[in-house]
């Protein structure tokens, strides 16, 4: 009886030590779910979700504070991915909140006064310029977040849709017209 108790106590001590050690040794910094959600988000940092960037939105989703249908640039597919990741139901975009066509910002060089306000607004440093010097957009880095449009005091920034060209063209989903099946008169007679 006593020896059995000792064995059980011994086992529990050993296992406790192992668990305690691994809790310290393999500790995960931060919430790994946030990282996973952040990886699904499109990283436009546009703030259309109401949070100041993709990471804060990911944190809000992980805490259960935000819905999964607040990210228009991610499109419906983004919602599907989030739903799958979090094990929740798909939720469509709210009225008039759907994704817009992809666009990049464009600065009208004749109007730009070089105020640097857009530089401060750009979340990905995709605008080049200096005070009283003309600013320009690095189109390849622009995420199309539109955050620079609002601060411009002379309204010289416009969003230009990216036209489809050969390099961005995609094969369409095969669609076929369904032809109604006509009764074959010969067959009908035979039967």
């Amino acid at each position: 009886m006593i020896s059995a108790l000792w064995v059980m106590i011994g086992i529990s001590l050993v296992l406790g030590a192992v668990l305690g050690y691994s809790a310290i040794r393999f500790k995960v910094e931060g919430n790994p779910l946030v990282e996973k959600i952040d990886a699904v988000l499109p990283q436009t940092q546009c703030g259309q979700c109401g949070y100041p960037g993709c990471k804060p939105y990911a944190e809000a989703i992980a805490k259960g504070e935000a819905d999964i249908n607040l990210c228009p640039p991610g499109g419906e597919e983004g919602i599907h991915k989030l739903a799958e990741l979090l094990g929740v139901e798909f939720k469509p975009f709210g009225e008039g909140k759907g994704p817009r066509a992809k666009a990049v910002a464009f600065i009208d060089e004749n109007t730009c006064i070089g105020c640097t306000l857009c530089l401060q607004a750009c979340p990905v440093d995709a605008i080049v310029g200096a005070a009283k010097q003309m600013h320009t957009i690095v189109a390849s880095e622009c995420t199309g977040c539109e955050l620079c449009v609002e601060p411009c005091p002379v309204d010289c920034i416009s969003m230009q849709a990216i036209p489809e060209d050969i390099s961005t063209w995609k094969w369409p989903y095969p669609v076929f017209a369904i032809a109604p099946v006509r009764n074959n008169p010969q067959k009908a007679e035979a039967s």
């Binding site: 952040d38 499109p42 990283q43 436009t44 940092q45 979340p123 990905v124 440093d125 995709a126 995420t143």
Partner: peptide
Amino acid sequence: QAAEIARERHEFR
């Protein structure tokens, strides 16, 4: 890839 680059640029900013 574009999202990855945007994330890096945003984090650096």
